[in-house]
Simulated scan of single mutants.
Amino acid sequence: MRLAEYILRFERHLKGAVNLKSKDVKDYFIYNTLAMECFQAANTLMDLAQYIVAKKKLGFPSTYRELFEILEKEGYISEDELRTFKRLIFLRNLIAHEYYRISESELLEMVNLLEKCSGFVSRIKTEASWE
C-alpha cells in the first residue's frame, strides 16, 4: 500500500509542477507554489527509492545520493537517470536549506528533471507485483 501512496503522491505533485511551469514564475505565489510542488515531488522520489532499497534489502545508504547510486548499481535506473536524480537532489536541497538561492530557471529545470524521473516511477508501477 505504501508503494501506491508514493506513486500517487509523486504523480500529484508532478502534475501540479507541470501546470505551473507555463505560468509567470516571477510571480511570488507562483514561484513559492512551484518550489513546494517540486520539493514535495523530489521528497516523494526519495521516499520511493528508500522503500525499494529497504524492501529489496539492497543496502544501507547514508545519503539520498547513495540511494540512487544503489538503484543504478542494481539496474533499477540508468546512468543517465542517476545524473538526473543527483541534480534533482542538489536542487531539492537548495529549496530545503537555502530557499532564497534557487532561481526561477532552476525551478523550471527541476520540473523538467521531475518529468524525466516519471519514467522510473512508471517502471516501478508496472513492476509493483513484487510488493
Rank of each mutant, 00 (worst) to 15 (best):
L58E: 04
E11S: 08
E69V: 08
E5P: 01
E127Q: 12
L71D: 10
N93Q: 12
D27H: 09
L34N: 08
F85I: 10
E98S: 12
Y31I: 00
A54G: 14
L114V: 06
E66F: 09
N19R: 11
I124P: 05
N43W: 01
A35R: 11
Y76G: 07
R123L: 05
L3V: 09
R87E: 15
I30T: 13
S129I: 12
G16P: 00
S78K: 07
S62P: 06
E66H: 03
F39T: 03
P61T: 02
Y64C: 08
R87P: 06
N112Y: 04
V111Q: 00
R65W: 11
A42W: 05
K21E: 12
L91G: 14
R12C: 01
R2H: 04
E74W: 03
T63P: 12
F29G: 04
E11I: 04
L114S: 09
A96V: 12
G119R: 05
I70H: 03
E74R: 10
R123I: 08
K55H: 14
A42V: 01
L113F: 04
S62G: 14
F85N: 10
K55P: 11
D24M: 05
L91W: 02
E106V: 00
K116C: 02
I102L: 06
E74A: 07
F60H: 09
Y100N: 11
A96N: 01
K15M: 00
L3A: 06
K57W: 02
R83E: 13
I89N: 06
K116E: 15
I70V: 14
L8K: 15
F10P: 10
R65G: 11
T63A: 04
K125E: 15
K55G: 00
